[in-house]
Nucleic acid binder design. Structure first.
Length: 427
RNA sequence: GCCGGGGUGGCGGAGCGGACAACGCGCAGGCCUUGAGAGCCUGUGGCCCUUCUGGGCCGCGUGGGUUCAAAUCCCACCCCCGGCGCCA
């Protein structure tokens, strides 16, 4: 959610941000007005509580002397009534204010392109030679001829967008995860196996309101949601803590299954394993000082690029336009890999700087050094390192040969115990 | 899931209806020292108001309740430890 102190300190920055998002800048003035009312009400309540405390002390003193304190008690009743009334008013104001702060989006970075569709995304970099031979098949056909997956049975036991993988594809999937973890470990990231379910309180700090409906699975009868990505539990790792600024940036590499409803994606990528309800992913997550986060954003996307170069998959990096940018991120790069059969670049990596938006909701702060008085919210960033099932799709399509076999990228072979080629069933 | 014990600052640990949440460790600053250490002094949860100096409120797992007054009493929930049960 929005950082109220920052809004107060720099309202024009937030007015501009809302306008870039297509919202009227007056929403910020509503926020400021509610904030002012809230604080003056708090002051009033605090003053009344001060009266209560001093009168209570007098009552104690009187009782100790064995005197009656009827007048004091009557005064106390009146003060308490007034406090209760004001507390009710404060709750009302606070709910309105919080409702706005949670609903309003993170102001986008100046470099975020305007526009509201995919065509408005700005291509930042391209790498590799896209293959465009006419004979190339899509991953669904390749999976079928390899005989290493069963999508039909998965649909009958679990529904659409599920899959069974078999044999070499199982190994390939874990090889990708292991390769991603090893890559990040060498870069100094701390490896994390996180919880796969989180409470509502944590989820509220991490995702937008809309995600609860469109993305997250709720566990029936429990205050728990299945994670949509390791980003969610990693963000919660330091919830409620004040970090020592000297240890920032803090970098984590999480690996986990990811569960997504994909509501609102009807008709898109209905076949195959590109868009599914459940997949594995290695995720980068950083906690930084505000002054570090834009460099960190470039660092995270550069790691993802290095991974896809090492895998030999042609890609481009795009700067996502404001209309496609979720409310939580201030800027987002996607890394899109070339898919020969579709003749399109498709998203495999998403790399976001959420600035202080998640940190405010989760109350993750830092101070420059121990015993420095001021605290400030950290910035959080997340980026895919390697989404394994989507990467399998990319490998199948880009590494396919005329005879129907599929070569395995060299960097994965140390994890595959001698498997270097996938061959069509019965050959 | 059941029975018992417990959740207090970064950590250990007192207070168990009314006076500053004692004391210790750790950490930071200062004095001392050629330097380090020891020793001594000071500080070390959050928020609000006002300013640069103070004042106030909140805070003892979370949320309610009782009371003039709750860390302290009552209720519900969460978590931790031990035992029993179940279990990959």
């Amino acid at each position: 959610m929005l950082n109220i102190k920052a809004v107060r300190a720099n309202p024009d920055f937030y007015r501009r941000g809302m306008e870039k998002r297509g919202l009227p800048s007056r929403v910020i003035d509503e926020v400021l007005e509610l904030d002012a009312r809230k604080r003056s009400m708090m002051k009033e309540i605090q003053d009344l509580r001060h009266v209560r405390n001093t009168v209570a002390e007098k009552v104690a003193a009187a009782k100790k002397r064995g005197e009656k304190a009827d007048e004091l008690l009557a005064q106390m009743a009146e003060v308490n009534r007034k406090i209760e009334e004001n507390e009710r008013k404060l709750r009302e104001i606070d709910e309105k204010l919080l409702g706005l702060l949670v609903k309003l989006p993170n102001p986008p970075h100046d470099s975020v392109p305007d526009g509201d569709s995919e065509e408005d995304n700005a291509v930042v970099r391209e790498w590799g030679e896209p293959r465009k031979e006419d004979w190339m098949k899509d991953h669904v056909d390749i999976l079928e001829s390899l005989g290493l997956a069963d999508l039909e049975t998965a649909a009958s036991v679990a529904g659409a967008r599920f899959y069974y993988l078999f044999e070499d594809l199982v190994l390939l999937n874990w090889a990708l995860a292991l390769y991603g973890l090893e890559f990040l470990r060498k870069k100094g990231f701390k490896l994390v196996q996180p919880p796969y379910m989180l409470t509502r309180k944590i989820m509220e700090g991490v995702v937008s309101f809309q995600d609860f409906e469109d993305m997250l699975y709720k566990v029936e009868g429990e205050d728990l949601y299945l994670i949509g990505t390791a980003e969610h539990p990693l963000a919660g790792l330091h919830a409620g803590k004040i970090l020592d600024g000297r240890i920032l940036p803090l970098r984590y590499a999480g690996v986990s299954p990811c569960f997504r409803k994909e509501a609102g994606a009807h008709g898109k990528d209905t076949k195959g394993i590109f868009r599914v309800h459940q997949f594995e992913k290695v995720e980068q997550f950083s906690f930084t000082k505000p002054s570090q986060s834009w460099d960190e954003h470039e660092f995270l996307i550069s790691n993802a690029e290095e991974i896809y170069r090492n895998l030999g998959l042609p890609y481009r990096v795009v700067n996502i336009c404001v209309g496609e940018l979720g409310p939580v991120a201030a800027k987002k790069y996607d890394l899109e890999v070339w898919m020969p059969a579709q003749r399109k670049y498709r998203e495999l990596v998403s790399c976001s700087n959420c600035t202080d938006y998640q940190a405010v909701g989760l109350e993750i702060r830092y101070r420059e050094a121990p015993h420095v008085e001021e605290t400030e919210f950290v910035h959080t960033l997340n980026s895919t390192a390697l989404a394994t099932e989507r990467t399998i799709v990319a490998i199948l399509e880009n590494y396919q040969r005329r005879d129907g076999s599929v070569e395995i990228p060299a960097v994965l072979q140390p994890y595959l115990h001698g498997i270097s080629v996938l061959k069509p069933a019965g050959r």
